[in-house]
Structure formats: structure tokens, C-alpha cells
Simulated scan of single mutants.
Amino acid sequence: MKLLGNIIWFVLGGFISWVSWIVIGILWSITIIGIPIGRQCFKFAKMSAAPFGKNIQFSDRGSSLILNILWLFFGGFVMVTEEITLGVIFCLTIVGIPFGLQHFKHAKLALLPFGATIYRI
């Protein structure tokens, strides 16, 4: 069932999220200083391509606070806005609610990507 959900997800809107994470990751990776942030974006691109069967655990450590603030101003706000918009659009239909909930999960991830860990369910 996870495989079917991931295929439908990618065709109906996950592709947009995946491409956005890849583009942001490439832009961050242009500079040497931004490579760690770009690598994190590529991890999340992989997760946004097939989110069913994966969950996100957020850390409450303060060590990633500076990176999260920097991320929010230089790419995070755009990603959060995109994910929330796609989530609302999908939740307008009954069939799209599971996909909308995945977009909302990605919006939280786009808001606080550093200190987050992706794991399989």
C-alpha cells in the first residue's frame, strides 16, 4: 500500500515538492559554506519523492537554531509557503486528504529542517 501511495503521490504533486527541494539544494551547494545545507535539502528531496512509510522526528536541542533561522530567511519561507499551499489544495477533496497531510508534514520539515531526522515506519 505504501508503494501505491508513493507512486500516486509523486505523479499528483510530489514531483513539485521534489523539484523544489532539489533546486534549493543546488542553489545552496553553489557556495562552499552552503554545502551542508544543500546536502540536507537533498535528503529531504529524497523523502519528498516517497513520503509514505517515513516519519520525521524533530530534535529539541538548541544547536541547530542558528542554521534554522538562516534557512528560514534564505529558502525556508518559500518552501513552507509552497507546502502549505499544496496541502490546502489537496485537502479540498476527500481523496486528496492523505496527500495534503503529507504536504503539511513537509511544511513543518521546511520550517525546521536542521535537527530533524527521517526514519522509516
Score class of each variant (00 low, 15 high):
12 L>T: 15
54 K>P: 10
78 V>K: 06
118 I>D: 12
62 G>E: 12
8 I>M: 00
76 G>R: 12
78 V>T: 08
98 P>R: 05
74 F>L: 13
80 V>D: 01
75 G>T: 09
13 G>T: 03
106 H>G: 12
110 A>Q: 08
42 F>E: 01
5 G>E: 14
111 L>C: 09
50 A>G: 10
15 F>A: 07
4 L>A: 14
44 F>K: 01
74 F>I: 13
74 F>E: 04
103 H>D: 12
114 F>L: 06
80 V>L: 08
40 Q>G: 00
77 F>L: 14
18 W>M: 07
117 T>F: 03
88 V>K: 03
69 I>F: 11
86 L>D: 07
84 I>V: 15
87 G>H: 00
13 G>I: 03
57 Q>H: 13
48 S>Q: 01
38 G>D: 03
59 S>E: 03
61 R>D: 14
103 H>P: 04
5 G>K: 15
67 L>R: 10
103 H>T: 08
119 Y>N: 07
2 K>F: 12
38 G>M: 03
17 S>Q: 07
88 V>M: 04
81 T>S: 14
64 S>F: 01
80 V>H: 01
104 F>V: 04
85 T>N: 09
47 M>H: 15
72 L>W: 11
68 N>P: 06
78 V>W: 12
100 G>I: 01
100 G>L: 02
96 G>S: 02
24 I>V: 15
6 N>T: 05
54 K>W: 15
98 P>T: 05
111 L>D: 07
52 F>E: 02
105 K>Y: 10
66 I>K: 06
60 D>E: 11
58 F>A: 07
13 G>P: 05
51 P>V: 00
36 P>N: 06
48 S>G: 07
1 M>T: 15
31 T>Q: 06
51 P>T: 03
120 R>H: 11
55 N>R: 13
107 A>M: 08
4 L>M: 13
37 I>T: 15
103 H>K: 12
50 A>D: 10
81 T>N: 11
35 I>L: 11
117 T>L: 06
19 V>M: 07
53 G>E: 03
80 V>K: 00
111 L>P: 04
113 P>H: 08
93 T>N: 00
88 V>H: 01
82 E>V: 09
85 T>A: 15
13 G>M: 02
44 F>V: 05
57 Q>R: 13
33 I>M: 02
96 G>M: 00
48 S>H: 04
2 K>S: 13
53 G>S: 05
118 I>P: 10
50 A>P: 09
69 I>N: 00
87 G>T: 06
56 I>T: 10
93 T>F: 02
65 L>A: 15
25 G>L: 02
12 L>A: 07
93 T>Y: 00
89 I>V: 10
88 V>I: 15
77 F>I: 15
43 K>M: 07
90 F>T: 07
76 G>I: 09
17 S>F: 09
22 I>W: 05
67 L>I: 01
99 F>Y: 08
66 I>L: 14
66 I>Y: 00
3 L>W: 09
29 S>M: 10
109 L>S: 04
7 I>V: 13
